[in-house]
């Protein structure tokens, strides 16, 4: 079976989905972020680290997925899913579609409740090392209880 190609970086907003697939010419996540930020100068991102940029972009009401699999062991796919604090129902529905594309993953950290204070960024997260699709499904089911801004989605 042909291996499904997964994005290295995926940014979901209410209007669009920006996917950046692995390219040999790009070495690290910041190279992928540079591509995204070139098209979105209005975000005025200040951070210089991959997670810092991701948190800042998520603060602009976008959901972000990053494939953080180690190059030397990419048979264990690992991901970071960063969720905005005020997602629309449309965005929540788009995030739910990730359940399917992340079924080959063996590690996922879901970041939510992002805050910024004078020290820097803080956030909460849930982490799973197994059965990622059901982990995402259960998280989305509970998301409305940990974030009142999230509407309970009807199955």
């Amino acid at each position: 079976m042909e291996e499904r190609k997964l994005p290295k970086l995926l940014v979901l907003s209410d209007q669009q989905a920006d996917s950046f697939y692995p390219q040999k010419a790009l070495q690290n996540h910041m190279d992928y972020w540079d591509l995204y930020l070139q098209n979105h100068p209005e975000l005025k991102i200040q951070s210089t680290s991959k997670v810092g940029v991701a948190l800042e972009v998520a603060y602009h009401n976008r959901a972000i997925f990053m494939d953080i699999s180690a190059k030397e062991a990419d048979h264990f796919k690992s991901g970071l899913l960063i969720l905005p604090n005020l997602p629309s129902l449309k965005l929540q529905q788009d995030i739910a579609l990730l359940e399917d594309i992340l079924q080959d993953f063996s590690f996922l950290e879901i970041v939510y409740n992002i805050r910024q204070n004078n020290q820097g960024w803080t956030y909460q997260s849930k982490i799973s090392c197994s059965n990622i699709p059901s982990f995402i499904g259960e998280f989305l089911e509970d998301w409305s209880t940990v974030n009142p801004s999230v509407l309970k989605m009807k199955k």
Binding site: V51, V111, W121, S125, K126, I127
Partner: peptide
């Protein structure tokens, strides 16, 4: 320059974390 401090709590058999970023000094 920066340290990602993750405080883990195991709730209902699942990992939850609170993360704060801080300088190495602090």
């Amino acid at each position: 320059r920066s340290i990602e401090v993750k405080k883990f709590h195991i709730l209902n058999g699942k990992d939850e974390a609170e993360t704060i970023y801080s300088s190495g000094e602090d």
